[in-house]
Amino acid sequence: MEYFVQQLINGLTLGAIYGLIAIGYTMVYGIIGMINFAHGEVFMIGAFISLICVMVLGMFGLTWVPLALLVTLIVTMALTAVYGWTLERIAYRPLRGSPRLAALITAIGMSIFLQNYVQLLQGARVKPLQPLISGGFEIMRREGFVVSLSYLQLFIWILTLVLMTIFTLIITRTALGRAQRACEQDMGMASLLGINVDRTISLTFVMGAALAAVAGLIFLINYGVIDFYIGFLAGIKAFTAAVLGGIGSLPGAMLGGLLIGLIEAFWSGYFTVEYKDVASFSILVLVLIFRPTGLLGKPDIEKV
């Protein structure tokens, strides 16, 4: 029971990371019907920028953790968003209307490029960071087994919740969200009605990248170790989460993220750590085969 609760807490934290990345996949898929293969790398870049930012702030003597985290959060979101914007501008916009395969290959190329770009500039060694937030609550204790909820995990949950709320409000309440939904339905018609389609798509990428940046920051402070390769696995798993939740659905992405996080935590806790990746991939395959619309997705009728 105690073990279960502990894995639940760990799983929810992991799920927050996957969910935040999955939103980027799902938003981009919703609007241009493409899997943004390079999104995992955007997350990785977010983690690196966070690390650099924390270290630079430390150099300037800003060591009061709440302020440092806030500044890091804002800077990382902003700088990573530029990567998202550039990605769309270079790899997707020129190929709108080209065969799918072409855009997909460009995205894969971008992903390989970004990975090696970071490797070249920052080195291949793993980068460790001292824990920024320590301590926590002790929830229960029995026979020497302590279930704890750290302040860090609490912070991650709150941060994720706040951001999710803000982004849900943006999508449902603002003109930008309306434009996005219009483009999702019919890009040609939306542009006839005076919606700036290019700008809307760009902003979608920017928002996705900003959330991936937050995921990167969370990954950094939660695990304390990053390298240039983290985007690959996290990307696939977040994509799995997006598919599981129903690609194109925002709440679906978050739900899928949480589920994948939980599944992974429990799998590692009760079965084998080594095969936890296999578990996520199997879920991806099973969902795609048996329920391609995911848990909350809309059915997709084949057009003939």
Partner: peptide
């Protein structure tokens, strides 16, 4: 790095 860039540039 060049592979990635080449894939992008050639597709474009």
């Amino acid at each position: 790095l060049a592979f990635g860039a080449a894939m992008v540039l050639i597709m474009l």
